[in-house]
């Protein structure tokens, strides 16, 4: 464990908590893409199948349980409890356009052709693009609530910090996973446009409005 990865995990945790707080306090899922949350749930389910078979550390297990339960809870809140506030008309990104290419790529490009490894690889590829429905929805509505933009900033930062973690592990632990690194770079790059808007607008106290 290194500081980059720990802070990255805490940013990830903060993002998920921020999202749950937003939903619970505003009693609304307005502006949230249920499809992205479904994809994140799928990322955790396919990545943490080794939760009971491969013990890494208490920290690792506790975080996996939290990420799994919170992502499933978020999908539940969006599609059942606060369904009335779910803006399905703007959440129209076709998930199959992400699921199928990620599945095919995971079968072709992986470290080992075994079910667990292919599912892990699928979850890595899917996580890189899972935010697209949410970013697409914001581009359609042209705006995002401030707390939603804080959520996105924390979520984008987490994988950016993981890139620093991979650099650190490459130089000091001689540990390098090309699949995770390439997917992580793609994932972080997808947030760059949002990061620019967040820093130039939200941090100036303005609402996140996309140029129409």
């Amino acid at each position: 464990m290194n500081a980059f990865r720990l802070v990255g995990d805490l940013c990830h945790l903060a993002a998920i908590v921020l999202l749950l707080l937003k939903i619970w306090k505003s009693r609304s899922v307005a502006g949230l893409s249920g499809k992205s949350q479904i994809l994140f749930g799928l990322v955790f389910v396919t990545r943490y199948l080794d939760l009971v078979t491969n013990f890494v550390s208490p920290y690792n297990t506790i975080m996996k349980v939290f990420f799994l339960s919170s992502s499933i809870a978020t999908v539940y809140l969006i599609y059942t409890k606060f369904k009335a506030t779910y803006d399905g008309n703007h959440d129209t990104f076709r998930m199959e356009f992400l699921l199928i290419p990620c599945a095919l790529l995971a079968i072709v490009v992986n470290h080992e052709f075994s079910p667990m490894e292919i599912l892990w690889t699928f979850s890595i590829y899917l996580e890189a693009v899972a935010i697209l429905p949410q970013l697409f929805m914001i581009s359609k509505t042209g705006e995002a609530e401030t707390i939603t933009s804080h959520y996105l900033f924390a979520l984008g930062s987490y994988r950016g910090l993981y890139i620093m973690n991979w650099l650190y592990r490459y130089y000091y632990e001689n540990n390098f996973d090309v699949i995770a690194v390439v997917a992580g770079i793609v994932q972080t790059v997808l947030y760059c446009d949002f990061f620019y808007l967040y820093i130039t607008k939200v941090l100036q106290g303005k609402k996140l409005q996309l140029p129409a």
């Binding site: 990865r5 995990d9 990830h12 080794d50 690792n60 996996k64 470290h111 080992e112 993981y162």
Partner: peptide, 10 residues
């Protein structure tokens, strides 16, 4: 061949 990865990251 790629050695088997022990995925120790979240």
């Amino acid at each position: 061949t790629d050695e088997k990865f022990e995925h120790d990251e979240l």
